[in-house]
């Protein structure tokens, strides 16, 4: 499998603070990678750079064969929209839109809203019967599954999830991880940022960060 993501000597500094130092990481297409570390380890900064929401101070980032480290904000927005599906710990949904409309928003800004396809995406995460419900009418687990459906709707090259089960009980956590396993089986590339050993254990590979340095790469178990 070819590399879908490569980070070469990536550094990120905020004033005098070195958030990331000389990070070198390759992720293959279809791989499931967990990025783990304690608070302040730099995993958020790393996700920010991979997710095209920030630019590294130095180093090279290659996503799907395209060097994105020096792209401007507009081009980064386009890359994020076309190639990355983002999932967060909090269920960032638009409160006045129904479940299906929340998915259609992502379709609209990508290309064109297609209600049928959005409904199918909801079916895949087991929310077909909740399509016309507002986010507040859904449980936490359902909201997170909706976020996953939204992240997948534009067929992203990478699914980037930041603490995706942080706000869920065990049952819902398992349901979300089941969906990730299905996606992984279908060939999706998944990068999960987490501090949970349990969540990390599902990944093919674990990358550990400490104080901005990558201290290990490849452990299977926490």
């Amino acid at each position: 499998m070819a590399n879908i993501l490569e980070l070469q000597d990536v550094c990120m500094t905020f004033g005098q603070v070195k958030a990331l130092q000389d990070i070198n990481l390759s992720v293959r297409e279809g791989e499931w990678v967990a990025i783990m570390g304690s608070s302040g380890s730099g995993k958020t900064t790393m996700m920010n750079i991979i997710g095209c929401m920030n630019k590294a101070t130095s180093g090279t980032v290659i996503l799907d064969g395209e060097k994105i480290s020096r792209l401007n904000a507009k081009d980064l927005t386009a890359i994020r929209r076309d190639k990355i599906g983002l999932i967060f710990q909090q269920f960032f949904l638009i409160s006045y839109l129904t479940a299906v409309e929340n998915i259609m928003v992502a379709q609209y800004y990508h290309s064109m809203a297609d209600e049928q396809e959005a409904l199918e995406a909801l079916e895949r995460v087991g929310l077909g019967h909740r399509a016309r419900h507002l986010p507040r009418q859904l449980s936490g687990g359902e909201q997170q599954r909706l976020c996953i459906a939204r992240a997948l709707i534009n067929h992203p090259k990478i699914i980037l999830a930041d603490e995706p089960t942080g706000n869920l009980d065990e049952a819902n956590q398992n349901a979300v991880m089941d969906i990730f396993h299905q996606l992984h089986k279908q060939g999706s590339t998944i990068i999960v940022v987490t501090h949970s050993p349990d969540v990390g254990s599902h990944a093919d590979r674990i990358v550990r960060l400490e104080f901005g340095h990558m201290v290990s790469d490849g452990e299977k178990k926490a």
Binding site: A73, T77, R81, L86, F92, A106, Y109, R150, N154
Partner: peptide, 10 residues
């Protein structure tokens, strides 16, 4: 922010 995340430009 959500709209920006899902692909809306500035």
């Amino acid at each position: 922010g959500i709209l920006r995340i899902v692909g809306a430009s500035k």
